[in-house]
Design a binder for these strands. Structure first.
Lengths: 213, 213
DNA sequence: GCAAAAGTGTTACTAGTACACCCATGC
DNA sequence: GCATGGGTGTACTAGTAACACTTTTGC
């Protein structure tokens, strides 16, 4: 037998820490373990549509997700070939904050450095997706999907510094993104800060794909 | 119902043209059309293993293949959700030459600029995989998988010039690859040429991932 | 010895890095 | 008015791009 599972891996960055959204498994096997949100691939909908439905169940509606790859969990059940189709999304802290409300299942954001015991091969999956993310932010190509709108350059910089584990000069970081003509100002400012409010940006409709790091 | 198909997309470059391997479909639907080699995902083997089997059937044994992504062909048959798992490989002209022998099915290398009528969504798949390839050769990360050994720098350069549709200075191209310490000489030379034989190289076991283009 | 393709080094320019001061806001 | 974080310009350094001649082979 064969089974196709859609696995959703949502990332965010809070206080310089990369975090993933996990939910608590309520049934055996692996009862009480944490896992990535998942759903069986529907026969009546495309993979993308099924994953959108899953996002809605988690109360995220405006998150862009990106299909990464598949992973075969051939070991899980003898005679069963389980194929995980991986979707990755990236949320800013505002969207995470809006999602604090109660759900029927336990959910929590875990730092990728302090992951709990996870069900199935989900630990492996998270690591694969982190690599995917790390690689993707090195080029401009799909950054607009990960960062839909309303981010400040210091915020964006923290994402880079955290994920790539490097330190970047603020002025040079600005220069890079503005020089390559990737961004436009929204005209808004982020006032929820101690110091001077930061300008908010969004990616342009069309920009050239360049290598950033 | 749900069905998982492994689709194999082999590329090569001959005379500055990017080519893909297609086989002729012998049964309805799309009888007589060309298609990518494919196989149903086995219940008794991982996706990777199934794809290796398919390679053997095509008489390619030493080709590295790389999993790209999935594509959902939800429209193909009403009530059927067909999930294509895409594998991509890259062959040098020597391996292509070795594969000229007869097979029970018709196979042919088509230039990506002159593709024939193709079955299902395979045209779309080929284009997605070309983009994948194009993106991958811009970084060092998995170049060693695409170019396992025994290539000359002029050959490699032609791949870049063709796929990226640019012209590169020979000296600067060499400098880039040698400076980043990606390659080592095999000590062999390619004698099958008109002019001076070219040194053959291979990628080192370990090299740093850098942005090349 | 001539045609064909490969190998090599130097200079000019462009892009990236390092660095310090001023600015807007909250308390 | 001071603490906090954001925004800006310039000089220097390193990496990329442009360029011509020599070398090795086959015929």
């Amino acid at each position: 037998m064969k089974q196709v599972e859609i696995v959703l891996n949502l990332f965010t960055i809070v206080n310089e820490e990369v975090k993933v959204l996990l939910i608590r498994k309520q049934t055996e096997p692996y009862k009480g373990y944490w896992m990535l949100p998942r759903v069986k691939a529907s026969n009546d909908a495309s993979l993308k549509d099924s994953s959108k439905l899953m996002l809605e169940k988690l109360n995220f509606e405006t998150v862009n997700i990106y299909e990464n790859n598949t992973m075969c969990d051939f070991e899980r059940e003898p005679g069963f070939n389980i194929i995980n189709v991986l979707f990755v999304g990236f949320l800013d802290s505002v969207r995470v904050e809006l999602n604090k409300e109660e759900t029927s299942f336990e959910k929590e954001w875990f730092s990728i450095n302090k992951l709990p015991k996870m069900a199935y091969n989900h630990f492996e999956i998270v690591n694969k997706n982190i690599d995917f993310l790390r690689e993707k932010i090195k080029r401009a190509s799909i950054l607009n999907l990960f960062f839909p709108s309303d981010f400040s350059l210091p915020e964006l910089q923290r994402v880079y510094e955290t994920l790539l584990n490097i330190e970047i000069d603020r002025r040079n970081f600005r220069k890079k993104f503005l020089h390559y003509n990737l961004l436009e100002e929204t005209g808004m400012k982020n006032e929820d800060t101690n110091g001077r409010p930061s300008k908010l940006y969004m990616f342009k409709e069309n920009y050239e794909d360049v290598s950033l790091f």
